[in-house]
Structure formats: C-alpha cells, structure tokens
Simulated scan of single mutants.
Amino acid sequence: MGQADVNVNLWLKDTKRFADLFNAILFHGETVILPENLHPSPETTAVSLQDAQGKNVVKKLYRDIIMNWQDQAVLMLLAVESQTAIHYAAPLKVMLYDSMEYAEQVRVKWKERPPRLSSAEFLSRFQKNDKLIPVITLIFYYGTEEWDGPLELHQMFDLGTEKNHAELMKKYLPNYHINLVDVRRLKNLESFQSDLQ
C-alpha cells in the first residue's frame, strides 16, 4: 500500500465521512447510516485451510477499512478498499475478502455450537437456522485514468467465441460484482453531506 492509500484510508476512517460515503452510494444521500452506529472492526481477516498434506495453513488478508454498522436490528459489515491504480482482478480480490469474512463468521458460530446437531449441520459446520452478517465492500477508486477493469467476475472469464454457449455457461458460473466508486467521475455530488462532496 502506497502513502497515498494510507492517507486516503486515514481520511475515510472518520466515521462521519465513512457514513456519508455509504449513505451517498447505497441510499442516494438519505441519512440511514449514522456515524455513532459505526465501530471499527479488525482489518485482518484470517482463515485456516488444510493443504494437500492435511496440515492447517493460515491465510491472512488485510482490509483497508472495515466497520460494524449496528442500527437496531440491522448488523452489517461495511468495507472500503481504496485504489489509486486500476486493479484488473478487483472482482476476485473483493470476492476473496468478502468470502474470508463469511468463513470467519462460520468458524465463530461453529465454536459456539450447541451439543446436539443434526448430521447435516455437523457436516456443514453451520446450523440450519444460522445467519451470516452481510458484508458490503466499496472500491474507492481515485486514480486519474478512467476505470477500464472488470466490474464483475464474468468479465474475467474467456468463454470462447460461440456466444450461445458462453451465455449458457454463464448461467452456471457464479458471478461476483464490485461496487466501484470512481471519485473523479461521480455524478449526483449533492448526495454527499460532508467534505467528500
């Protein structure tokens, strides 16, 4: 991470700016997320996986900014990945970060499991009525060039030249899109209430 990203991250960690960013992008300027309902979350996400030899290997990823948003019954994780350069694997990067957050939630729930589980719950390491906390990640792109990278995982695949076959395959290939905030090309600046405008 370059010094510019560090400075942008420190600037965006202010809960008023962070709330304003998400309110402007998600809710078109309506004040839904209040700064006092945002709380920093650990920026390191780790997951333990088994390698081919059966050894546990810990993989860590470092988020730029992630906060818990707790508002009455709503609990969400809101994350920002700042980019000064175009990231041509951004859908994969965000999918991995978000997936690791979800995997960590499953791991924590498994540690809190009751003594009696169905065989399916034991196999899943997740109970039938368990729910995950949603994660929304924004890519805060402030580079000078117009973003020409993929906005979804499907755009990273080469499915051949036969259009009919490609469209059929896309139905079975999971997709993952990114939420890009290209700050130099934003419209509706009146949606912002802070100095983000």
Rank of each mutant, 00 (worst) to 15 (best):
N129C: 00
S124F: 04
E101K: 01
Q3N: 09
S99H: 06
G143T: 14
T45N: 10
P35N: 08
L138V: 15
L117D: 07
K163H: 03
K109F: 00
D14P: 14
D14N: 15
L21M: 12
S119E: 14
D71R: 03
T15R: 12
L186A: 06
V57T: 03
R184L: 10
P91Y: 04
Y142W: 15
P35V: 08
G54H: 15
A24G: 02
Y62A: 08
Q72V: 11
L189H: 13
V47W: 05
K109R: 09
N56W: 09
K16H: 13
N56Y: 10
D64R: 01
Q53E: 14
L77Q: 09
T84H: 08
L123I: 13
V74K: 10
F22S: 07
L96C: 06
S99G: 14
A103L: 15
E30Y: 02
T84L: 11
E43A: 13
E81T: 02
F157Q: 14
D5N: 15
K13D: 10
T44R: 07
K187E: 15
Q53S: 13
I66K: 00
K109G: 01
N164W: 03
D130S: 11
K187T: 14
S48A: 11
I133D: 00
L186F: 06
D51C: 06
L26R: 12
E167N: 11
E30F: 01
N179V: 10
E167H: 12
